[in-house]
Design a protein around this nucleic acid. Structure first.
Lengths: 232, 232
DNA sequence: CATTGTGAACTTATTCACAGCC
DNA sequence: GGCTGTGAATAAGTTCACAATG
């Protein structure tokens, strides 16, 4: 049975700032660590401190979705885990397909963190005939030409795009036609997807660039060849 | 010789909102596509349209760093590529070390996109004796006990953490002691790093959760498989 | 005359601060 | 005492709109 009784408010998702959703998943991760450490309750200030946010930020974020805290007590960890999972939709399993079984694709197939959060990788696709038909990490690699068929059969809901940049848009189009509700794109391109399909882009080089910006602009000027003497 | 006179303003990096830096790397990526497509110039509105921002947003972001445009013309693509690479610090190569040669680590070693943007993966580390000493993708896997030594020898500036969550903080501490300026963390934990070291976290399950939020909360207005008019 | 760069207006996000509750 | 939830205050970010410009 589908869960018909969410005990949280369900605002229009577009009315929730993406930054809030992003932090929500951080709260969830931190709460799951707390649960594993045997903590029964926590507080907005503890959560905030561990993540680098203010206590007010934590409370305001949660307030978008309801009243989860207990004045004088804080938040019961398992309770809040359940609430946030319900908000994020991860209180159930999701069927996911992977397109592109190269380097990165194979790593995604083997990544344990997906299963731990309820994501089941149920199909993989590639265009390379030498890969088609093989099993990787218990998942069969299908011909990409079979994408629509297999996605329908397996009722796949989400897609991971791990193909070269040049093919990413075509793959995304096929995933959308096959009815996926969302895509995580690992190719370094901006995908065009229709309204009503959500997407997230993960570009590894761009992540490094966020770091180099801070490093390059931090100390003195650009004299990288010299190993700076760390006196402390 | 090339270490002087950047022809852009260098504001205190902490005074630049992270969102701006994030968009900057998107502009760069898009500009590089335009260059490959043979475009000589572009405009804030073209750039914005392709990325889903307003033209004013693009201009304001760039204005943090100087005057790169030409009224009536727009931006010369190569010129702006050069300027943004200088701002992000990717107008030179960076030496990067990888810690953790599991599934994901091996994929990172093989990822071509790093080299394309000037990131050189020069050393890899693992604690597993069966991996130590092997070569993967042309990179030697060292004993993690040798981390400080190897990082100093190779003048490594950035670290990639791809170890299990339980070990990520210890690894980050070692990287920081060894003098790296920044870390990209692929383990699903929030790392503590000192002031003056920058970090970015990439959590694959969290990326998927951003998508499920949108999909799960869109449900109920389940749109039948209607052909939607193409919009851009 | 298409386009930039930018102050001003506006919108959104964050923090403050405190009433109410345990 | 400690803590949440929230309106009010503040800060930050975005868009508008237009003078300046090649």
């Amino acid at each position: 049975m589908s869960n018909s009784k969410p005990n949280h408010v369900r605002p229009d998702p577009d009315s929730v700032p993406p930054a809030v959703v992003n932090r929500l998943s951080l709260y969830l991760r931190e709460l799951q660590h707390l649960v594993r450490d045997g903590e029964a309750t926590t507080s907005s200030s503890q959560l905030g401190r561990r993540l680098g946010f203010t206590d007010a930020q934590v409370r305001k974020d949660l307030a978008h979705f309801g009243h989860f805290g207990h004045p004088g007590i804080g938040y019961r960890c398992e309770e809040l885990v359940g609430a946030i999972r319900s908000i994020l939709g991860t209180d159930r399993e999701w069927s996911v397909a992977l397109v592109g079984v190269g380097n990165l694709g194979r790593a995604l197939l083997g990544y344990r963190g997906f299963a731990q959060q309820g994501f089941r990788l149920e199909a993989a696709f590639d265009a390379d005939p030498t890969k088609i038909g093989s099993m990787l990490e218990g998942v069969e690699v299908h011909d990409i030409a079979q994408l629509a068929q297999v996605l329908a059969d397996k009722r796949i809901e989400l897609g991971l795009v791990a193909v070269p940049a040049a093919e990413a848009q075509a793959v995304a189009d096929q995933l959308v036609s096959a009815g996926v509700g969302g895509i995580v794109n690992f190719a370094p391109v901006t995908l065009k997807v229709p309204e009503g399909v959500s997407k997230v882009g993960v570009d590894l080089a761009r992540e490094l660039e966020q770091v180099t910006f801070a490093v390059a602009n931090r100390e003195g000027s650009r004299v990288p060849r010299v190993h700076s003497p760390k006196s402390d």
